[in-house]
Structure formats: structure tokens, C-alpha cells
């Protein structure tokens, strides 16, 4: 596992300039030694939770931030992943290492399924449909009691084992989610800067122009939903085994709102921004100690305020593009080249 994260590490580091490299490297070291320096189960739990939400938010960010398709039912994919993984392991005695990708694929499949009928819909219609989808999934989880035990939930979801060693320690989960976060980040960074990622962004900017450039917009929107949902499903699988118990409430509308708030606070379409949004909004309710009840108010308030004050969010709008050639003279045009809002 160390090797794996190491090669992934070098692969991201290759692509960032020196200044950022040292920043990311120190961040990574901080993340790596956190459990050794701060030996607290509580801290470890919160940090793991942060990781889960980062993966969830990065997935939604591809759909909403980059491809510009609103989704108000993100928790559905999270739930599908969680239940798929838990049921595979508990009912079919499958290995976690098989259930994890299966959960991602199942969620991706539902992403496709949702994508197909909704791709003709825009804005409000799409938002409402995805909300309805989220509720349908929750209600099915709640009512298909033969399979899911309904509101009684699934207790005793086993932890994975590797080469006969049971991996149930909190440290294992912590480092595993760190790896998942890195894999998700690298994947997203690569997608964004590729033919696929540009096509998605073109759709967000101007769907008609995108079509006229030869982009099969329907297909790409469905791909965005499937990839994003895949990561939500992975996060779901991780969560199911980590918490050892799931029930449909874990995947209700409130969770969709929470993840959306993270993406929006992060400014949409900024990977560091979304990570920041996920971390802040996971920590915030914990920091304000008695604020567990305020959690949802905080999320709602963030949605309202970011929209009223800056619809682009905190990081959004300021886009920095690295072009490997020709030095760029910003502000030398005939017109004043001001930054976007």
C-alpha cells in the first residue's frame, strides 16, 4: 500500500510547479503523521469523516461544478454504494476488496440510469428530477425490508481483511481513506485537464455551442454522472464498513444538501476549493461543540449566503491555467483585462 500511494504521489507531483509542490508535500506529510502526533480516536474519526466527504464532494463537483448539471440527490449514489457493499459482504460473503469496486460500479450504473431520462432536462427540471431520484432510492431502501431491513438498518457490517489479517483498526481506515482521497483527486485533476474534461466544461458554459463543436452533449453528461456516482459509491462502501452500521437515514436529503454545500462553498470547479469546503463543513459542526443541531442550519445558511453574496463561491471564478508555452502577458490587451468576479 505504501508503494501504491507513493507512485500516485509522484504522479501528481510531476504536474505541479515547485511552489505548489512544497505546499502539497507539506500538507501530505501533515496528513500522514497526524495520527502519530495527535493520538486521539476522536480526531481520527473526524479526519476519516472529512475524507469520506472529500470523495463525495469531488464526485458531485464533476457533475455540478464542471459539467454544470445540478444534482440534489447525491446521497442516493452514496447509499447505493453503501448498501451494495454491505449486502455483498454480508449476504454473499464477498470480499471487501471486491465489494468496494462493485459498489462504485453499481452507483455508476445508477448514475447512467438517472442520466438517460434526465439528459433532456435543464436547470430546475433537472434539479427536481434528481431530488425525486434521491427520495425514490431512500424510500426503496426504507421499504424493501426483505433486502435492507428497512429502518432497522444493517448492523455488524464486517471490516475487511487482507491476506488473512483483519483490518479493523481505526488507523487502517484513516490511511485507507487518505489513499482514496488521493486517488480521487488525481483522477479528477486528470479528467478536468483532458479532452473529456474540456467537453464537460464546454457543456456547462454553452451547451449549444458545445454541440456545434462536435460534442455529443447527452453522452458526456451521462459519463459525468456515471464517473461522479462511481466515487460516491466508493465513499458509500467505505462508510458502510467503517461505521459497521447503516440505515436509510444516513442517505437522506440532508446528506445531499451537505455535500452540495461543500461543493458550493468550495466555489465549484476548483479541486482545492472543494476539498476545503468538505473539510470546513465537516469540522464546523464538531468545532461548535453543542452545534450538532445547528449543522443543517449552517449548511442551509451557507447555501443562501454564498448565492446572495457570491454565486461563484469562495474559490470560483478565479481560474488559473498553466500553459506550457509562450509567456502570457496579462493585461496587455486593447481592453482592460479584469479578473472575473
Amino acid at each position: 500500500m505504501m508503494n501504491m500511494s507513493k507512485s500516485l504521489l509522484t504522479s501528481i507531483l510531476r504536474r505541479i510547479d515547485e511552489k505548489e509542490k512544497s505546499l502539497y508535500l507539506s500538507l501530505l506529510i501533515a496528513v500522514a503523521i497526524l495520527p502519530l502526533v495527535w493520538q486521539s480516536d476522536y480526531v481520527l474519526r473526524i479526519a476519516t469523516l472529512c475524507g469520506i466527504y472529500i470523495v463525495l464532494a469531488l464526485g458531485l463537483n464533476l457533475v455540478t461544478g464542471y459539467a454544470g448539471q445540478m444534482c440534489l440527490g447525491w446521497a442516493a449514489f452514496y447509499g447505493i454504494g453503501a448498501y451494495t457493499s454491505a449486502l455483498l459482504v454480508m449476504r454473499l460473503h464477498a470480499s471487501f476488496w471486491l465489494a468496494l469496486p462493485a459498489a462504485g460500479l453499481m452507483a455508476a450504473f445508477f448514475g447512467l440510469l438517472l442520466g438517460i431520462p434526465t439528459m433532456r432536462l435543464k436547470n430546475t427540471y433537472l434539479a427536481i428530477t434528481t431530488l425525486g431520484f434521491g427520495e425514490i432510492v431512500r424510500l426503496i431502501l426504507l421499504n424493501w425490508t426483505d433486502l435492507t431491513r428497512g429502518s432497522m438498518g444493517l448492523p455488524g457490517i464486517p471490516s475487511p481483511s487482507f491476506l488473512g489479517i483483519d483490518l479493523e483498526g481505526k488507523l487502517f481506515y484513516y490511511y485507507f481513506i487518505v489513499v482514496l482521497v488521493i486517488v480521487t483527486l488525481v483522477t479528477m485533476a486528470r479528467i478536468v485537464d483532458s479532452r473529456l474534461g474540456r467537453a464537460l466544461q464546454a457543456i456547462r458554459e454553452d451547451e449549444l455551442a458545445a454541440k456545434s463543436m462536435g460534442i455529443d452533449t447527452t453522452r458526456y453528461k451521462i459519463i459525468a454522472f456515471a464517473i461522479g456516482a462511481f466515487f460516491a459509491g466508493i465513499a458509500g462502501s467505505f462508510f458502510a464498513h467503517y461505521s459497521a452500521y447503516i440505515d436509510p437515514h444516513n442517505f437522506a436529503f440532508g446528506e445531499s444538501i451537505a455535500v452540495l454545500s461543500m461543493v458550493i462553498l468550495g466555489g465549484m470547479r476548483s479541486l482545492p476549493g472543494v476539498v476545503f469546503g468538505a473539510v470546513v463543513l465537516t469540522l464546523l459542526p464538531e468545532v461548535l461543540r453543542e452545534a450538532a443541531e445547528y449543522r443543517m442550519i449552517v449548511f442551509g445558511g451557507i447555501l443562501m449566503l454564498t448565492m446572495l453574496l457570491r454565486p461563484q463561491g469562495i474559490f470560483g471564478g478565479v481560474q488559473r491555467k498553466k500553459v506550457s508555452q509562450t509567456p502570457v502577458a496579462v493585461g496587455q490587451g486593447k481592453q482592460p483585462l479584469y479578473q472575473n468576479r
Binding site: R198, E205, D206, M213, Q319, K321, V323
Partner: peptide, 14 residues
């Protein structure tokens, strides 16, 4: 109908 919030280069690459 340019992709206004994307770079000039990205517009051409798209």
C-alpha cells in the same frame, strides 16, 4: 457564443 469562463486555449482545444 464562446466558452466565456474557459481560457482562450481551451476554447480552441474544445
Amino acid at each position: 457564443r464562446l466558452f466565456k469562463e474557459l481560457s482562450v486555449l481551451d476554447n480552441v482545444r474544445i
